[in-house]
Design a protein around this nucleic acid. Sequence first.
DNA 1: GTCAATGCAAATCCTTTGCATTCGG
DNA 2: CCGAATGCAAAGGATTTGCATTGAC
Lengths: 135, 135
Amino acid sequence: MDIGRNTWQKQLIIDTLKREKNHPTISDLYDKIKAVDDKVGQATVYRNVNKLVEEKKIKRIMTDSGFRYDCDCNDHYHLECNKCGNIIDLYDEKYIRLIRRLEDEYSIKIEESKILFSGICDKCLNYERKSSSIN
Amino acid sequence: MDIGRNTWQKQLIIDTLKREKNHPTISDLYDKIKAVDDKVGQATVYRNVNKLVEEKKIKRIMTDSGFRYDCDCNDHYHLECNKCGNIIDLYDEKYIRLIRRLEDEYSIKIEESKILFSGICDKCLNYERKSSSIN
DNA sequence: GTCAATGCAAATCCTTTGCATTCGG
DNA sequence: CCGAATGCAAAGGATTTGCATTGAC
């Protein structure tokens, strides 16, 4: 649980990440950080974000458009919308049961899960329905 | 469903992929292919594998160690073992119910799912148990 | 004062692209 | 033949690394 030395760069990176709810890519994050102080180096952002992932303070999400980061460490799923590209969070109260069932059935231990669905989010689906009812 | 022109390179790539049950990376695949005929270019492998993914003939799995490919297109989960690094398949008869539940609850449409667990596979877990009972 | 952390630039890794050439239909 | 597919090499993009310097403790 060593947090290392407390530099303002590290703090800025953590703060920005916590404020960002939209599952940013590293370059999203880097842009936001540079807007606040452009003296922060890219390598510093990479190094700190990687360390945060290792320490399990944040989660790395692998999408088709590259890695994204999520500071919500509760277990949940993600949906990557094929229309608008946004990533939305899905919480599932039966998640734990799914895990237990798989662990039992396969005699394995599941320590972490990366669950990414792709499809169409509620907003885009709603928009689609309206459009098709007009035409 | 256009399969395009039937070159021996394309056929070799498809055959190798189908024979490979171990979720190979592109470079695993490339090595195997070059062992058969080293005149196949890397770009050809990339181009063909990408096309197969687009055509949904094979699946792309995103792991921490990069992209891997799976020719089993039935819906299933994967477990990446933190000990041995292997990726094993998990099939779940309740998968469809999970999808339906999420679709209903969030008013979304799920078209594809990429589900990757990490943890410890049955072999490594079994080995661990034996070791700890000795010590 | 030490040494972890930083900034910069170069290096590395993975993947895609441009283009001349080949070869399947 | 024609043009899709290939092989090569070069380009591209994302991430990491080497190293001198800075600054947290």
